[in-house]
Design a protein around this nucleic acid. Structure first.
Lengths: 343, 343
DNA sequence: GATAGTTGTGCATACGTATGCAAATTGAAG
DNA sequence: CTTCAATTTGCATACGTATGCACAACTATC
């Protein structure tokens, strides 16, 4: 391999100008004469020169890299968000450096260290929390953090979520309105704010309707755990007639168990409602009634917050909650006149 | 924000040693006395020092960044691969910088330029090809490229795929053995090697069995296109009794159309076979018979190729094809004695 | 055409680290 | 205690770029 690194010095030499001139031509907002710009561009073109982002970052303190920490991509919500985040950031000249973590242990902290080594301009964590100790370090390093789809009390951390409490309540209202009487919940991981908030809202919603949760199991946001929970809940004869599952990913597992293992009819025997509205939820094989997390708007808010912090020096902590609609589909009995009421 | 960048110089000062000593302590394979190492580590600890990867890369010429170019994450195969790639590379001290492209136009080339700006140590493209012009530039820059799940003739490009031709043939053999007579194909995008190879193998396999393709439509690897193709193929009365769909992602759409729109029974009326074996394929809602692309081994091969090139200076072009088994499930009629034969 | 004001350019230096080289230290052997 | 080899350390410099500062070139004004 030839391995010809062509630098601004080479370009300067060929164009017969100084290195600083070359630098200015490639720097946004520096003043150069049209004549100079043309000369330099020509030389650069001929040599195939492109500025070295890393070297630049050394001096500007801006790496144009955003670190994304994510636990797993199995739940379709996250690849979808990742794609949208990447596109949005790319449009602003930033790119995403990916860090996979296992959510359970302290690997988050370890990985975050590596993250800072890369001098990232900002950090987005999707579906993972972080230790306060770590939050402090990021704050000290001046690196803004946005928790995407996860809340945390630490007041140094921005966060963007859907309105999980309200979402849970809305689902309760819906299930109550269609006359269900034994309503169960397979909750999101209780170690996560999203899981806890959805459950809390759901309970309040049921209470408002004069109902009470007949059973509640932590599904850990995992397919296997949710499936096991479904078997436990629905094997007996006094089974629930409706279940709110903490996210779509688990809801699919639950529907699989209900229909193919326990031979129950959905929604005839059991109504199932999920949370997220991932693309798969609308496919007819599942046709899942679910509360939409508006990923577009969540991504928008995340990017806006991050860039505001990085480029405009904003320092106000944002705790953004975005409302989403209930997508009424075929997996749950529909209350009479539901559509009318909502017009 | 405080913004305390702590450098090796700060650590050196506090430990009462030279900056180079600090550097050596944090450099793999440099010789330092235990005493020195301890002093430096202590000071570093106290100040919260971590080496700046970007500055390091400037001098070593190694950024520890691998660029990943990917077109879309909607097909579950890719987030799955991304997760595995990231984990494998992370274990070797590398991280993935993500670049989303739209496959159709020349945006690949544009994005690749940005990629090189980051001085990536290597490039993985998932599901996208690249212009020869570009391949030349990467070769010139000494940056190794691995095409993941996509082939291309250019002899400067490594590639890792499943054995698509053989896979297609195996599927043909399977469908023929179960006595299907009117066999159709909704092909992968004809602009991709994977799509073409699977189709070619499929045709050969049918021929070997004395059969012929009764219809073939390009599904573009897109859900909507595949759905439209399914309607076109199966609306008439002389419909096919089996269809091989170019990947699982499209196969799901096809099954949805067949079952819920055209009210056909799978596999009673039509057998459906996919390609990839993404996790969803094994969920009972689809229970899709499909040819597995062994993503674990493909990832392994990709990482090995890339790191061999980067770290061991290997320069031999690898064109790796990995065989995968046919996962026989419920979406296609099973030939009598199929299991016996295969023992 | 001289002067002041404006813009464009070059010089020098800095960013944070790694590394060749020579000096200094250590340890072993005589 | 001396000598020599082996190891450890510090000094200086380089990586590729951006930017403050001083100076050169140009424009407009009288």
């Amino acid at each position: 391999m030839p391995g010809e690194k062509v630098t601004s010095v080479d370009v300067a030499k060929r164009a017969g100008v100084s290195q600083s001139a070359v630098s200015r031509v490639f720097t946004q907002g520096a003043s150069v004469s049209p004549k100079m710009a043309e000369k330099v561009h020509k030389a650069a073109q001929e040599l195939g020169y492109r500025p070295n982002v890393l070297a630049r970052s050394l001096i500007t303190g801006r790496s144009k890299i955003i670190g994304l920490v994510v636990a797993y991509l199995e739940n379709q919500f996250y690849p979808d968000a990742l794609e949208k985040l990447s596109n949005a950031l790319q449009a602003h000249g930033y790119h995403i450096l990916v860090f996979m973590v296992s959510n359970e242990d302290a690997s988050v902290d370890k990985v975050m260290g590596e993250l800072l080594d890369y001098q990232v301009d900002g950090i987005i964590t999707a579906s993972v929390g972080m230790s306060n100790d770590l939050a402090a370090r990021c704050a000290a390093a001046g690196v803004p953090v946005v928790l995407f789809n996860r809340g945390q009390d630490d007041d140094r951390l921005n966060q963007v979520t859907s309105n999980n409490f309200e979402g849970g309540r809305q689902i309760a209202k819906f299930l109550a309105a269609s006359g269900h009487e034994r309503i169960a919940h397979i909750a999101g991981w209780s170690g996560s704010s999203t899981g806890r908030d959805r459950e809390a809202g759901f309970r309040v919603g049921l209470k408002d309707a004069g109902l009470e949760l007949c059973a509640c199991i932590d599904g850990m946001y995992k397919r296997e755990t949710a499936a096991a929970a479904a078997i436990e809940l629905f094997s007996g004869s006094d089974r629930p007639d409706a279940v709110f599952v903490g996210n779509d990913h688990m809801a699919f597992a639950v529907m699989d168990v209900l229909r193919f293992e326990l031979k129950l009819d959905v929604p005839g025997d059991v109504s199932v409602v999920g949370y997220d509205d991932v693309p798969l939820a609308s496919w007819p094989a599942y046709d899942l009634t679910t509360l939409r997390q508006p990923s577009n708007r969540m991504v928008e808010a995340t990017v806006a917050t991050l860039l505001g912090w990085i480029e405009d020096g904003s320092t106000s902590i944002q705790k953004i909650q975005i409302d989403g609609p209930l997508m009424v589909r075929g997996s749950a009995r529909i209350p009479q006149g539901w559509n009318d009421e909502r017009l």
